[in-house]
Nucleic acid binder design. Sequence first.
DNA 1: ATGCAACTGCAAATCGTTTGCAAAAGAGCG
DNA 2: CGCTCTTTTGCAAACGATTTGCAGTTGCAT
Lengths: 146, 146
Amino acid sequence: MNEPQQTKPDYERELRRAGIRITRPRRVILDILSEADSHPDAMEIFQRASVIDKSISLSTVYRTMKLLEGMGAIHRHAFEGGPARFEQASGEHHDHLIDLDTGDVIEFHSNRIEELQDEIARELGYEIVHHRLELYGRRKGGRKKK
Amino acid sequence: MNEPQQTKPDYERELRRAGIRITRPRRVILDILSEADSHPDAMEIFQRASVIDKSISLSTVYRTMKLLEGMGAIHRHAFEGGPARFEQASGEHHDHLIDLDTGDVIEFHSNRIEELQDEIARELGYEIVHHRLELYGRRKGGRKKK
DNA sequence: ATGCAACTGCAAATCGTTTGCAAAAGAGCG
DNA sequence: CGCTCTTTTGCAAACGATTTGCAGTTGCAT
């Protein structure tokens, strides 16, 4: 029942290819990221990493996140009022719906919206480099724990 | 368009009505906000305020922004990698296109996109409280400078 | 004018993140 | 293996944006 789908791209290979060293902290962080189902922030990654290797520092988590982001291996999201949260870049583009009560993040995608965005930008004489679309809401019909 | 502009709503009246004191710093900040055509950040507001009254402090700018935000008089935007920027809440809802080269902010609105957002949220069992849609792009054709 | 809560400036605190530095550890080579 | 030559690390300190505690000031209802 725990069959990972797109969960474990071979980052080590990719890193190597980019002339970047595979160190113990990086291996640990990479593992955590590929197993993460949510969108953890640096502190969460740090804590999970600490369980595996107590000597890993928060700075290294941040440095690694920046490295991976630069490689395009992960995406960094700055949702409202909170630390940055990360997610694997595997899979295709999507936007986010944030549950205001639980902080849960739900991914969605709308081709139609993206088309409209392009159209709007074009009309204004712009070319979109990237965008950010976040919906903040609450569950309809009363609360529910997850 | 019969309505002039949205430049100078009578905040003083509103503030009074909410039992909030009209102080010199607040008057100055309010004036700056109503004359701002762009989306200034706290430091910019602070600097413009300093010209008028050298004794105004940055803390007061922040405190006033929070107060006004709480009253719904202004909106706070946290665009990518930068301090929060503020804008008067007068006028109707819109989203933003940020010029990556100049930092300029262009406002736009699309009913169609909002409808689609609602639809998506509804399908996921959510009710949107608010959203954030930001397009980051550059001028097409290479034209620079505004 | 008087009084008192609301407000202010200032400095210090906070939060998330980055950075300088000396020590430690990858990886190619012999 | 052991030797280099780098890259990477942990730590602590620095950072930028924003907030807060405090003691003194001010608005404004009386």
